[in-house]
């Protein structure tokens, strides 16, 4: 076996550390994002530690460490005994702060890269559905999407996530579905922050409706264009929020 082969950049990537040490921050980030974006509301109770461990597929120690860090920053509090558990403690001021610091911490390039990744997967999903001749399966997806009338940003993000997952599912690809789940876990909540604004919500959702209509009528290119319009609306909002946060930081200094 030629040793040089294991030194090439490609093979090096294969042997790169898996990074299980990063599990605690990742779990913490996931829960923080959920709190920041309102998916978990103040007063909500988290599942028990062992349930969390099995759902995240990590050890109990890892879960405890992540929860401990969230308690230390007053985002969670714990009540003992009957009816006890971990509760979301954050108030609205804290939540706003959390969100702003999360957005501020991202570079413009990072946000754009999220969008590139999201586009790559969602384009592939729409193209695959069309190639497989399964466009008519989207009639049901469209119906349930139109029936959902979310009243706030968190509800809208859950509809958004549901739509993306269902579309990935309709492409009949386990891998595309898993990529979509990964996207949602990593930055779905952030990418769709713009859904908090009722006007943006309306434009984004009407773009999604056109996307579904175009898919069903067999025009994949127009569907991708409509999806793109929705992403751009949210992206523009996110980038301008980031600018605001940075400007404020400069002014405060």
């Amino acid at each position: 076996m030629d040793d040089r082969r294991s030194d090439s950049p490609v093979t090096a990537a294969i042997y790169a550390p898996i990074g299980d040490k990063a599990l605690v921050p990742r779990i913490r980030q996931r829960l923080e994002d959920a709190i920041a974006t309102g998916v978990l509301a103040p007063g909500d109770r988290l599942p028990g530690e062992s349930t969390l461990a099995s759902r995240f597929r990590v050890s109990l120690v890892t879960v405890r460490e992540a929860l401990q860090q969230l308690r230390a920053t007053d985002l969670l509090h714990t009540r003992q005994g009957r009816g006890g558990g971990s509760f979301v403690a954050a108030d609205s001021v804290q939540i706003r702060g959390l969100l702003e610091s999360r957005i501020r911490a991202l570079s413009r390039a990072e946000i754009n890269d999220f969008a590139v990744y999201y586009r790559a997967i969602t384009d592939a999903v729409l193209n695959t559905i069309a190639q497989m001749g399964l466009e008519q399966n989207l009639v049901g997806v469209r119906e349930s999407f139109l029936r959902a009338v979310p009243q706030d940003g968190a509800a809208a993000r859950s509809v958004q996530g549901g739509l993306d997952l269902r579309l990935a599912g309709e492409a009949q690809s386990v891998r595309l579905v898993h990529e979509q789940i990964r996207i949602q876990n990593e930055f779905g909540a952030l990418l769709w922050m713009g859904l908090d604004d009722p006007d943006l919500r309306e434009s984004i959702f009407s773009s999604h409706e056109s996307m579904l209509d175009e898919m069903i009528s067999g025009d994949t290119a127009s569907a991708i264009e409509a999806r793109e319009a929705a992403v751009n609306i949210s992206l523009r909002w996110l980038l301008s929020r980031r600018n605001d946060a940075h400007r404020q930081e400069r002014e405060n200094n």
């Binding site: 759902r55 049901g140 119906e143 349930s144 029936r147 959902a148 859950s158 996530g161 549901g162 997952l165 269902r166 599912g169 579905v177 789940i181």
Partner: peptide
């Protein structure tokens, strides 16, 4: 719920 996709199923009857 545990399959992560459960939440996206809008209704079993569909």
């Amino acid at each position: 719920d545990l399959t992560e996709l459960g939440t996206y199923q809008s209704g079993l009857e569909e």
